Amino acid sequence: MFMRNLNLRLLKNNIIEKIETGGSTREFYRCKYRNKIAILVIDPDIKKYLRVHKHLLNGHINVPRLYWTDKAKAALLEDLGTISLYVIFRKQPELFYHRKAIDMLVSMQKKCSSKFPIAERYDRPHIKWEQKYFKKHFLFQYGQVEQTAIDKTKDEFAELTDQVLRSIQDHDGFFMHRDFQSQNIFVKNNKIRIIDFQSARIGPLTYDLSSLLRDPYADLTISQERQLLDHYFKKIKPQKIPLSYDQLIAMYRLTCIQRNMQALGAYANLALNKGKKHFLKYIPRGRQLLMQGLKECNFERLLEIVQRSRGAEVKRRF
Score class of each variant (00 low, 15 high):
Phe233Cys: 04
Leu289Trp: 03
Leu95Gln: 02
Thr221Asp: 07
Lys71Cys: 12
Lys188Arg: 15
Asp170Met: 07
Gln141Ile: 04
Ser113Tyr: 12
Tyr267Ile: 03
Lys32His: 13
Trp129Arg: 07
Val314Glu: 10
Glu17Ala: 11
Ala119Pro: 02
Thr221Gln: 06
Glu20Ala: 08
Lys48Val: 10
Arg317Thr: 06
Phe318Leu: 11
Leu66Ser: 11
Ser24Val: 02
Ile241Lys: 03
Asn14Cys: 12
Ile195Pro: 13
Gly275Val: 03
Ser199Gly: 15
His177Leu: 10
Asn260Phe: 00
Asn269Thr: 01
Leu303Met: 07
Cys112Leu: 10
Asn190Leu: 11
Arg308Gly: 06
Phe175Ile: 00
Ile88Phe: 09
Arg30Tyr: 09
Leu205Pro: 04
Thr82Ser: 14
Tyr33Ala: 03
Thr161His: 10
Leu165Gly: 10
Phe197Ser: 11
His98Cys: 05
Leu11Met: 08
Phe28Trp: 08
Arg9Val: 07
Arg4Ser: 14
Thr148Cys: 09
Ala158Leu: 11
Ile305Leu: 12
Lys71Gln: 12
Lys48Ala: 06
Lys47Ala: 13
Glu94Val: 12
Lys152His: 13
Leu303Ser: 12
Pro117Ser: 00
Arg253Ala: 07
Tyr29Met: 05
Ile185Glu: 00
Leu213Tyr: 01
Ile102Tyr: 03
Leu95Trp: 01
Phe138Leu: 05
Tyr86Lys: 14
Leu56Phe: 13
Arg26Met: 05
Asp170Ala: 08
Tyr97Cys: 10
Leu56Met: 13
Leu139Trp: 06
Ile61Gly: 14
Ile249His: 03
Ile46Met: 10
Pro44His: 09
Gln262Trp: 04
Glu159Leu: 15
Lys48Ser: 12
Tyr207Phe: 14
Asn14Gly: 11
Tyr122Asp: 00
Val106Asp: 02
His60Leu: 13
Cys256Asn: 09
Pro204Ser: 10
Lys136Glu: 14
His53Leu: 13
Ile236Glu: 07
Asp70Phe: 10
Leu302Gln: 11
Leu270Tyr: 00
Glu130Cys: 01
Leu80Lys: 03
Leu280Gly: 00
Tyr207Cys: 08
Asn7Gly: 09
Leu160Ser: 10
Leu95Ile: 11
Phe134His: 00
Arg4Leu: 14
Ile83Val: 14
Asn5Gln: 14
Leu10Trp: 04
Lys277Met: 04
Leu272Gly: 11
Asp246Pro: 00
Val314Lys: 01
Leu11Ile: 07
Lys281Val: 06
Phe175Arg: 00
Asn273Val: 02
Asn189Gly: 15
Ile222Cys: 03
Ser211Met: 04
Met104Ile: 05
Ile241Gly: 01
Lys54Gln: 15
Gly203Gln: 04
Ser167Arg: 11
Leu40Ile: 05
